[in-house]
Write a protein that binds this DNA or RNA. Structure first.
Length: 274
DNA sequence: ATGGCCAATATGATTGGA
C-alpha cells in the first residue's frame, strides 16, 4: 500500500518493523532500507544482546544505531540518518520490569526536533494468566508516558508492535480472534484510551479500508490465505499528524525469502528545512 | 484458525511468539 507516491525530498520518512531476530533478518533489513530509504526506523524483537547487534552493515548505509536488547527475547532498536540527541531505554513506571521493550530517542535535525519511541508491547496470551495482567499494566504505563510527552507539544512518533488489533476491520476474521489477548475488549479499550489522548494512527489517517494487515502467522498457510492482522502502528502527536503526507505498509516484504512474520509500516512527515 | 512455523538455547526438547 502506497498512499502518497510523490515522496517529497523534504519529507521525513519514519518506519517500524518487527524483524523477529535482527541477526536472521540482516540481509532483508539492508535490502529493505535500500529500497524504501527511511530516515528513521524503529525495530522490535531484535532478540540479541547489544554487543551482538549487527551494526556494521546498517551503519554502512548511513544510519546511526541505538539499541536496547537482551538475551533470547524482546529487544528494540532505533536507526536514524540523523544524529541522536538523547537515547533512553525502558518505559517508566515499573523499575522491576526487565523486558527490553522500549527505547526513546530525540533527534535534532536541520528541520527541527523529533521524539521517537520504539515500542514492543507485550503479547499477553494466554489471557487468563499473569501475562495478560502484565500487558494491561504495560499499556497503563504507556498511556501515562504518552500523556506526559504530549504535554511537550512536540512532533512525537510512538512506533512499534503494539500487539493490538484496534478494530474488526484490522483482522481477516474477527470471530476467530475474539478470545485472543490481541483483540479482547479490554485490550482494545486501553488502546483507545491511548489514541484518545490525541494520537493519530498514521495508516488510518490515510485509509479506512479493511484488509490493511502487518502480520501473517507462519502457521497454517496464513500468508497465502491472507489471514492477516494489523498490529504494527505509528501513532503521531498532533504536531506530527499535522505534517503527515503519506503512509504505507510494505506487504511485499512478507513474500521474501525467510521473512519475518511482520512487515514494515512507514509514514512520511512533511517537515521543511529550516 | 491452526495440518501446515520460526527463532533461541550449550540445542536435540522446551519456551515464546501471535
Amino acid at each position: 500500500m502506497v498512499v502518497n507516491p510523490a515522496h517529497r525530498l523534504s519529507d521525513m520518512r519514519i518506519a517500524t518493523w518487527n524483524v523477529n531476530s535482527v541477526k536472521q533478518r540482516i540481509d532483508s533489513l539492508t535490502a529493505w532500507l535500500a529500497e524504501r530509504s527511511p530516515d528513521i526506523v524503529c525495530l522490535q524483537e531484535t532478540k540479541c544482546v547489544d554487543d551482538a547487534f549487527p551494526r556494521e552493515p546498517i551503519e554502512a548505509l548511513g544510519y546511526n544505531v541505538a539499541v536496547h536488547g537482551q538475551k533470547t527475547f524482546n529487544g528494540v532498536a532505533i536507526l536514524s540518518r540523523f544524529r541522536f540527541d538523547e537515547v533512553t531505554p525502558r518505559l517508566p513506571g515499573d523499575a522491576a520490569d526487565e523486558h527490553a521493550r522500549f527505547l526513546e530517542a530525540t533527534i535534532s535535525t536541520t528541520r527541527g526536533v523529533l521524539r521517537v519511541a520504539s515500542i514492543y508491547l507485550p503479547n499477553g496470551n494466554p489471557p487468563d494468566t499473569e501475562k495478560y495482567t502484565y500487558k494491561l499494566k504495560w499499556m497503563d504505563r504507556l498511556i501515562k508516558y504518552a500523556n506526559e510527552r504530549l504535554d511537550l507539544e512536540e512532533p512525537l512518533i510512538l512506533a512499534g508492535d503494539y500487539n493490538v488489533i484496534p478494530t474488526p476491520r484490522d483482522v481477516h476474521d474477527p470471530a476467530a480472534w475474539s478470545k485472543d489477548a490481541l483483540f479482547l475488549p479490554r485490550t482494545r479499550e486501553k488502546f483507545r484510551a491511548l489514541t484518545h489522548l490525541g494520537l493519530t494512527d498514521a495508516i488510518r489517517a490515510v485509509s479506512d479500508d479493511p484488509g490493511h494487515f502487518t502480520f501473517w502467522d507462519y502457521q497454517a498457510g496464513a500468508w497465502p490465505k491472507n489471514w492477516g492482522i494489523r498490529i504494527d502502528h505509528l501513532l503521531l502527536s498532533p504536531q506530527a499528524a499535522d505534517r503527515l503526507s503519506g503512509a504505507g505498509i510494505d506487504k511485499h516484504v512478507r513474500s521474501w525469502e525467510r521473512p519475518s512474520d511482520h512487515v514494515p509500516v512507514w509514514a512520511d512527515l512533511a517537515i521543511d528545512p529550516e
